[in-house]
Design a protein around this nucleic acid. Structure first.
Lengths: 355, 355
DNA sequence: AAATGTATCGATACCGGTATCGATACCAGT
DNA sequence: ACTGGTATCGATACCGGTATCGATACATTT
């Protein structure tokens, strides 16, 4: 038994060969750990000869640095935490893409977590990420429970909330008011003469932003003395097929509809596809309005209306704020960057209904 | 002098409040660092009284653990590295989503990097991630330069290559053969009687998988004694509008086309939208075939053909392999999981052209 | 020649946790 | 009373880097 164990250990030793550390590099180069450390980090107080020797040795023995150890000596690591509610939604992929793009060629790297629109999970994910002592944090939204806000504040690191500027802003924020986005779209639609407007959406619980758009939309209608003709809500992920199905329902129940506001482009596109099959003239007889201005909103150019948002721009701007605040000489002030969506009504503009 | 220094320190203390460490928790709870450490990790050799005291103290003073320090004592951290070529492409969002889903409720957390289909950048990103001493690594693809393969092997951590099973497999792999996927689709199309088949794609450099599908597709045609009627390639991101434009070009140059294979669903859908405008019967007169089976492939049910891939399943399976190998009692063998795409031809099956 | 400055390097002490092992107290068994 | 066992705890030595400061060698100035 014992002999076996020892044998296993020695075999293991040969396989694992102990991790290669800076000390190994130093020995191979014939210098001290410190000189090796300085040489690899490009410090200026190492002779050129030694820099060469160290770099050569490091490459030869296949040295890979250890961020864990390096970060432990500082107060923060060079990780940037990112918390998103979801990843299947391409909106957040675009945001993520903007973030990684801005972080490219910097020393910072993103770690991230998904909250699934669940506040408890969000709290755990944030706490977990904070345990990595990130240099900064990007979180989605502005509606957090008190406990979450507390740990965010206690972390004492630059924080950027993204997507939404409506709720509580803890530090910096990049995004726009979804309430206003909904409001503005409703105003624009009313201006074209549409008045018999319905709503169809997939608003899952805790998707505050979609809910805010709807609220803003309704507020504008209300101010103009109108109500939603119909209001369909499905608590599921939004898909094309949901749009197809619900527009059928809506039209048969409310044939008078001349406009439908959707919670996003996917459902709106689904509705458009169904309308094309039913030979309903869009937007002449029925305007269909999505949100985000994703690629799919260009499926039939001019037919779908939408608010074009700059997802990647939001991610990029958020990351850049963190870069400024993490590398900045002085601690720069918190910022608020608003990237207002652009309303795009397409052919609807040429078809102001005369009703 | 001395008094001043001490004064400065106390002021600094108030401002920065020094990071709260385990030692602070221990002192607050009146136990040693070790007991506090054990209590917080749920060790079994701490009295219940002290566990309570420590947990209470930790909560009261707002202690947040330090993964950096904890990981430094082990050979690996509980990070899982993920390297993807791109994030704007929703395919990889789905993969990512599968990964994070599988990692939920585990101690592991994803760090990730984007290679932008650039081999040099990929190398840097991988090296950077390895510096965090991740417990495992997920990388996209099977075609790596030697230098990259070297550091992957030297890392001596579980590695899963995803998406593609065609190239060099270093350790484990999850995905399918894109060559075969292209081949199988061509065979299926030939079986329906289509023979005047063209190709339209957005294949940016180093997108080996799209290129492999095309190669497999051509091989099948070749075996049946056919050639591509036309072959359009654009070196850009694939979008609906590209599909719209290229299908016009293709049809005017080759009106005899009865089928077009696209590099993915987006372009195929774009082509379909254009065909609907031109009142071309799809798939009766012209079959349009995409790839992936994304939501958009259901825009007009039955009209688009596609190969339905399980992106989230690939991510999830890859993460689960890592979980098994990182937490497994023994070092489990490397695995190969093939998730073959399902061919979906829709209405095309009822319309085997008699030509 | 002495004094001063500059470039280069290494010994040491950390960073914030955890593994290890020994110390202590208390119990049961003989 | 003595031995052995168990439960509980703390002192110490790390993990792999980096900041700091002092030491050394050599060039430059006076």
């Amino acid at each position: 038994m014992r002999g076996e164990a020892i044998h296993l250990l020695s075999v293991k030793d040969e396989n694992l060969k102990k991790e290669i550390t800076l000390k190994d590099v130093a020995e191979a180069a014939g210098v001290s750990k410190m000189t090796a450390s300085r040489a690899l980090r490009g410090a200026n107080d190492v002779s050129k000869v030694n820099v060469e020797k160290v770099k050569k040795a490091a490459k030869e023995i296949g040295y890979v640095g250890n961020h864990l150890a390096a970060s432990l000596t500082k107060t923060n690591s060079n990780l940037i935490g990112v918390v998103l509610p979801n990843l299947t939604n391409i909106v957040f992929s675009h945001v993520m893409s903007g973030i990684t793009g801005a972080l490219d060629d910097t020393i910072f790297q993103p770690v991230f977590g998904v909250s699934d629109y669940d506040e408890e999970k969000e709290y755990e994910v944030i706490k977990n990420i904070l345990s990595w002592r990130p240099a900064g944090l990007i979180v989605t939204g502005t509606n957090f429970p008190e406990s979450t806000k507390l740990i965010l504040r206690q972390a004492k690191i630059p924080l950027v909330q993204i997507m939404d500027t409506d709720g509580d802003i803890i530090d910096s924020v990049v995004g726009f008011s979804h309430e206003k986005a909904g409001y503005d779209m409703a105003r624009a639609l009313l201006e074209t003469g549409r008045e018999r407007i319905g709503f169809i959406g997939c608003i899952i619980e805790n998707d505050f932003r979609a809910a805010k758009r709807k609220a803003g939309f309704i507020r504008a209608l209300d101010e103009a003395g109108h109500n939603l003709v119909c209001d369909y809500n499905v608590d599921s992920v939004s898909t094309i097929s949901v749009g197809r199905g619900l527009v059928d329902e809506a039209l048969s129940a409310h044939p008078e509809l001349d406009c439908i506001y959707f919670s996003n482009d996917d459902i709106a596109a689904g509705a458009l596809f169904r309308c094309i099959e039913k030979q309903i003239a869009v937007p002449e007889d029925l305007a269909l309005i999505g949100f985000n201005g994703m690629d799919i909103s260009n499926c039939f150019p001019g037919k779908l209306g939408t608010s074009v948002t700059d997802r990647a721009g939001i991610g990029s701007a958020a990351a850049k704020i963190l870069l400024r605040r993490c590398t900045g000489e002085m601690s720069i002030e918190s910022e608020k960057i608003v990237l207002e969506p652009q309303i795009r009504l397409g052919n609807l503009l040429e078809n102001s209904s005369s009703s």
